[in-house]
Design a protein around this nucleic acid. Sequence first.
DNA 1: TAATAAGATGCAACTTTGTTGCAAAATATT
DNA 2: AATATTTTGCAACAAAGTTGCATCTTATTA
Lengths: 140, 140
Amino acid sequence: MERELEKLLKKSRLSVTDSRVKILELFFNQQGALAHGDIEKRTGEKFDRVTVYRTLQAFLTKGIIHTIPTNDNSIRYALCKDTCEEGHHHDNHVHFVCNDCGNTTCLEEIIIPEIKLPKGYASNQVEMIVSGICRACKKG
Amino acid sequence: MERELEKLLKKSRLSVTDSRVKILELFFNQQGALAHGDIEKRTGEKFDRVTVYRTLQAFLTKGIIHTIPTNDNSIRYALCKDTCEEGHHHDNHVHFVCNDCGNTTCLEEIIIPEIKLPKGYASNQVEMIVSGICRACKKG
DNA sequence: TAATAAGATGCAACTTTGTTGCAAAATATT
DNA sequence: AATATTTTGCAACAAAGTTGCATCTTATTA
């Protein structure tokens, strides 16, 4: 596990440090999205707030994670499945936000359908966020 | 105009005040979404920051405006075309965010296509945000 | 329309969130 | 192992958001 993470970091030309490995681990160990706050909580005040910000920023520009639009004031981040080139990142899957548990999940298998824009508009990226009750909460 | 706004406020059981009328006017006078910051700027420091927060909150719970998910840390608000019941708000149109001018527009005429969710998921609301270059910026 | 009740506003003080510069520490390179 | 390069944590700060409370405004009613 640690090895894999190291590889990913090295491939992205990021030096392998404690914080990066731990934070990356968090993403791998959970099937969903994390906000900055979640990460601070789950790392247990191990790293400085600034480090978390910078780590997320680094992962973002290297295309290791991507952002998911939200309705509240917190950017959510999730792992990119297919490796994305720096800068040019494109997700094409639907995101699901559970109103019960609050978790955000990537529905990798659900592809965002194409739409026709009005004349004069040029599309660059499309996001689709479905909210409702997730599988786990429906059962419970 | 003022009359219409007053009517809308009264219908929502909100008392008619200076700030509410002015802020509501802002929404009516522009075809797009506004973040808290935009509103503060455009009202020209006329109202206290706290008032703006509380006004938006009030409009939101009364179903006068709705939020649009964003990738940055700012909630964007837009007018609800069809009046929405309190709490239960449903938009079905696509939102467009211009990477050039930064404006968010409601594409009222573009309806969000239906999608099939994996088993066990229940959908409640769907948001679709397209980003790129808007008509105005493409011309300029 | 004046008096009262209900509600909204602004201020102050505070908390939370995010940013920047810089010295010290860790990692990478030779 | 020594040096160069990065990254980290701290401090100080800026921006964004929240809460309680006295004051003022709007609504209500007689």
